[in-house]
Amino acid sequence: MAHSGSNHKIDYIELAVADIGRSRQFYGAAFGWTFTDYGPDYCEFNDGRLRGGFTTFGAPKPGGPLIVLYADDLEDAERRTKVAGADIVKPIFAFPGGRRFHFTDPDGYELAVWSAQ
């Protein structure tokens, strides 16, 4: 059987959220993601490279794996994230290979944004 290019790769991320509209507003404003609605309880997001979904089937569960986004301009990403309503829980810091910051979204999920610059 031939394998697709997606075999054994992360294909989709799904987050349980309290309010799909609020999540759309936040991620659209902070990162420019686009969205496709599939009824009142599900919305797919697309960041231009990876797709995932917001669902109200279940309560938000902050914690678990850390989702890390990339930004060419880390300071601009941090500013946009704050303006969109995020709480910065770890301001920009250096680590081997680059710099990053962590934030929590409106449902309490902690994510990070990193840059090689």
Results as ranks from 00 to 15, higher is better:
116 A>Q: 07
45 F>N: 07
48 G>M: 15
33 W>G: 08
91 P>Y: 14
29 A>K: 12
65 P>T: 04
57 F>K: 11
34 T>H: 04
25 Q>P: 05
12 Y>W: 13
57 F>I: 05
110 E>C: 05
90 K>Y: 00
72 D>T: 12
109 Y>P: 03
2 A>T: 03
1 M>V: 14
59 A>D: 13
10 I>V: 11
112 A>F: 03
69 L>K: 12
112 A>H: 11
39 G>T: 06
37 D>S: 13
77 A>M: 13
32 G>T: 06
9 K>S: 09
31 F>T: 06
54 F>Y: 09
85 G>F: 08
45 F>K: 01
50 L>W: 03
115 S>C: 04
5 G>K: 11
73 D>T: 03
95 F>K: 00
5 G>H: 14
101 F>K: 02
47 D>R: 00
2 A>W: 01
39 G>Y: 12
96 P>H: 14
45 F>Q: 01
68 V>L: 13
40 P>G: 08
61 K>Q: 08
11 D>V: 09
68 V>N: 09
82 K>Y: 05
52 G>N: 13
115 S>G: 02
87 D>I: 01
42 Y>L: 12
117 Q>T: 13
108 G>H: 08
71 A>D: 08
102 H>I: 04
84 A>G: 05
79 R>W: 12
101 F>N: 02
83 V>S: 11
51 R>W: 04
44 E>F: 00
101 F>Q: 09
22 R>D: 00
107 D>Q: 06
66 L>D: 00
107 D>L: 03
